[in-house]
């Protein structure tokens, strides 16, 4: 399955975590979570609300302190799209200027074109719709040519059709710049169609593997219910890239 970048997959991890645990207010938010992302690989984190997905990402990024070991490739360039991006109308900032804070002009222009948002360049950041903001934030994250893209539910506010397109775009960008991708999402269908590896989280790692392996795992059915599991199993089978003519790029 998905063998076109199997050579890259054999590389050492960009980011890895071993036995991460985090307690907040007496509750185990994360317990003994281990995870690694390798170059060129899309790892998707799924799990019910409140299962610790965002907390895990924030711990991996160093925004939260957790116990356990986190190892980064030295000098790792990360592109991060946070779950929340509060905007304040008191700050006048165009999309172009916002992006120029993080990357040079040509890279900004190319990244905006890549996510089909070149026309947003002169717009005020605070005036963007949710879907437009999602694309701009993705453009910002890829403008710096990251080795690892970390996306925390990057699609809140994006409609279903836009969501599928954006996931497809993320996979294409991965192919182009060869970055690893770690993303959190709630939409199981789109996730299953694009991920190389799925990690199912409910404070601990319930199951992980390829989409096919995960949906047939008994732990997955326990987490999401048997109905969702069997429906997704069918879906994953139909959307398996090996079963269809699927042209990248």
């Amino acid at each position: 399955m998905l063998c076109y970048n199997s050579i890259m997959l054999s590389n050492a991890p960009l980011l890895s975590a071993a036995h991460l645990s985090l307690r907040i207010g007496g509750a185990d938010i994360l317990s003994d979570v281990s995870l690694a992302v390798r170059p060129g690989e899309i790892v998707t984190l799924i799990g019910p609300n409140g299962s610790g997905k965002t907390t895990l990402l924030r711990a991996l990024l160093g925004l939260l302190q957790a116990t356990g070991a986190i190892a980064r490739k030295p000098g790792l360039r990360i592109g991060y799209v946070p779950q929340n991006f509060p905007r304040d109308r008191s700050l006048p900032l165009t999309v172009g200027r916002f992006m120029r804070l993080f990357a040079d002009g040509p890279a900004v222009a190319a990244a905006l074109v890549r996510v089909d948002a070149a026309d947003l360049r002169g717009r005020q950041l605070s005036a963007l719709s949710g879907g437009e903001l999602a694309r701009v934030l993705l453009a910002r994250a890829i403008a710096g040519k990251p080795e690892l893209l970390i996306l925390d539910e990057p699609l809140a506010g994006v409609d279903v059709a836009g969501e599928a397109a954006l996931y497809h775009l993320i996979a294409q960008i991965r192919d182009e710049i060869g970055c690893g991708v770690l993303l959190v999402s709630h939409d199981l269908h789109v996730v299953m169609a694009q991920a190389d590896r799925v990690v199912c989280l409910n404070h601990h790692v319930c199951c992980e593997g390829s989409a096919e392996q995960v949906v047939t795992d008994p732990a997955f059915a326990r987490l999401f219910g048997p109905r969702v599991a069997s429906e997704l199993a069918l879906y994953v089978h139909r959307h398996d890239p090996a079963h269809q003519d699927y042209v990248h790029g």
Binding site: R58, L61, G62, L63, R77, I78, G79, Y80, P82, F85, L91, L93, F98, L101, F102, R140, G144, I150
Partner: peptide, 17 residues
């Protein structure tokens, strides 16, 4: 530049070092 970056989104600035 550093102040503006931290103002726009502190999490991004910190996460990306």
């Amino acid at each position: 530049r550093a102040w503006l970056m931290a103002t726009v989104n502190g999490d991004i600035a910190r996460a990306e070092g």
